[in-house]
Computed example of a mutant assay.
Amino acid sequence: MTLLKQDNETATLGSAIAASTNPSGDTPFNQVNINGAAVIDNTHAVRGTQSIKLSPVSGSVDSFRWTGLSSTAYAASFYLWVDTLPGTETWICNITASGVRSGMLVISNTNKLRLIDTRGTSTPVWTATNTFPTSQWVRCEFYQTVAASGASQQASYFLGDSTTAVDTSTLLTTGQTGSAAVDTVVFGKSDGGTYASPFWFDSIQFQTAASGLIGAYPQVASTVVRPTSDISNSGGWSIAGGSGSMSIALADESDTTYVQSPDNPTGGSEVVKFALLQTGLVTIKVRHNATNASPVITRTYELVQGSSTIISTRSVVLPTTITDYSWTTTSAEAANITDRSDLRLVWSDTV
């Protein structure tokens, strides 16, 4: 079994994906076919702060691939962020043997995920019930064995790292996936259709000699973690000095990009989630300020596990200059943490 993976974190921000300069992470792609643009971007990210942003052009292919494979049972898993649905059939993952398709995931002309095999797009193996989700990370997965008939197949998609599928084909056993071992997997827009809106790929995996779906991209525990995703915003918080997600604005550790509450805040909160944290006491570090001395603004911070388990709380009157603020959990508070992959920071302002 071979597992190829790419999380884009070691690549240079803003660098173009090209045959000679593609992400140098766990497994660099060996071939790239870009006609629009593909760059390392920090607007959205699954793990860390970076992903691949594709800006395709109508009528052209914009894709990257791993080649030189040899497998008669395989699985693919990747996270996809789409703000604008294509409304036309768009191939997002295509797996071939000597140029002949074995299996493929597409977003259909009705904006639903489809599984395709050698029977082609006019005879889809499976079509999702729901419209493909937008403006969030969606993990797409599929598994197939290679057989001219009676092949095993399964396609599913999930919101982020969830283990509960939004839609799934369940395991099918009537596939027609060819008779030759697959040698190439292509990600991106691998068709010449009209779709020309930006979209993002991240945390990509491909497994040979697979026995089922791969699952979520692995998390590595770290001693220092930063916000990786937005959970909720009930207080009208906004990004200043940048664009994209709240978590990205906070994770870059720059005073030129930050989040701010509305004037005269009334307590609505912002919630962000962190990457997997190692064991031990937890120290929360922030930089904050109020733009004016009046009215006095009190900020409340809560370190929370999941949606409701409060681990530690602090309240502080905001100073009028940007100031470092931190606190460390007690041993008793840290002992109440049972899932370090789901730690969140909640904060709210009141006058």
Rank of each mutant, 00 (worst) to 15 (best):
D7T: 14
A11N: 01
T12G: 04
G14V: 07
D26V: 11
V32D: 03
A38L: 10
I40V: 13
D41E: 09
H44L: 05
A45I: 09
T49P: 02
G68E: 07
S70T: 11
Y79L: 06
I95N: 04
T96A: 11
G99L: 02
G99D: 02
G99C: 08
K112W: 05
S122H: 06
T127D: 01
T129K: 07
T131M: 07
T131E: 03
P133C: 05
W137C: 03
F142V: 02
Y157H: 12
V166W: 10
T168H: 09
T173G: 09
G178N: 07
V186R: 12
K189Y: 06
G192V: 11
T194M: 10
A196S: 15
P198S: 11
W200H: 09
S203A: 15
I204P: 00
G215Q: 06
Y217C: 02
Y217G: 03
A221I: 06
A221S: 11
S232I: 04
I239E: 01
G244E: 02
G244V: 07
T256I: 12
Y258D: 00
G267I: 13
G268N: 05
T279R: 14
L281K: 15
V282F: 11
I284C: 10
A290G: 09
T291D: 12
N292A: 15
I297D: 00
T298F: 08
Q305N: 06
G306W: 09
S308V: 05
S315Q: 13
T323N: 01
A332C: 04
L343E: 00
W347P: 04
